[in-house]
């Protein structure tokens, strides 16, 4: 099995809440990625089967959504918002700081696989800007010092 039995059962339960099997596809892709790291070829085959779609149809859906990745990301995926509210409060500087500190650029991964970096659009933290998301966790009202601490804490956690 590509995903854990628990997740597989969860998918089967959720699919029942919709009139068509493919309806739960987008969340299934995301939850699969969360469990196994990225959307692998095996995951695509598995979800195509589950939804009665072809693999190509599943790939078509994947390429539309920016959170879905078909390549491995870092263990901690650092997403820096540089959209307007963040930009006005230093979002670009936050992104530059991350680039320097991690030594990687947009959509790149550190050699040890611990971090990856992405410049992203508004994450819904505009009133608490500048903000980033590391995986699903928000870090807001960032200053350079706060940002250093956030990144150091993740490194330590690893």
């Amino acid at each position: 099995m590509v995903v854990s039995e628990k997740l597989d059962r969860f998918f089967d339960e959720k699919i029942k809440e919709y009139p068509t099997r493919r309806s739960f596809l987008v969340p299934m892709l995301l939850y699969t990625q969360d469990e196994i790291g990225y959307v692998t070829d095996e995951a695509i085959a598995y979800l195509a089967k589950k939804t009665d779609l072809t693999e190509l149809e599943v790939r078509n859906v994947i390429s539309y959504y920016s959170l879905l990745h078909t390549k491995p990301m870092g263990k901690y995926h650092v997403q820096v918002c540089t959209n307007i509210s963040c930009m006005l409060r230093g979002g670009e500087e936050v992104f530059d700081h991350c680039r320097q500190k991690l030594g990687i650029g947009h959509k790149q991964k550190t050699a040890d696989g611990v971090f990856s970096l992405e410049e992203v659009e508004c994450i819904g933290a505009c009133s608490w800007a500048p903000a980033i998301q590391v995986n699903y966790d928000f870090h807001e009202n960032l200053t350079p010092e706060k940002l250093d601490k956030v990144l150091d804490d993740y490194r330590k956690k690893n």
Partner: peptide, 23 residues
């Protein structure tokens, strides 16, 4: 239900497409 990153999906008809498991 949850999305997977796409502003355009907030547009109501695109939202329905997404909920139906499509682009």
């Amino acid at each position: 239900h949850t999305g997977a990153g796409a502003y355009e999906v907030g547009e109501e008809s695109a939202l329905m497409e997404s909920l139906e498991g499509k682009r």
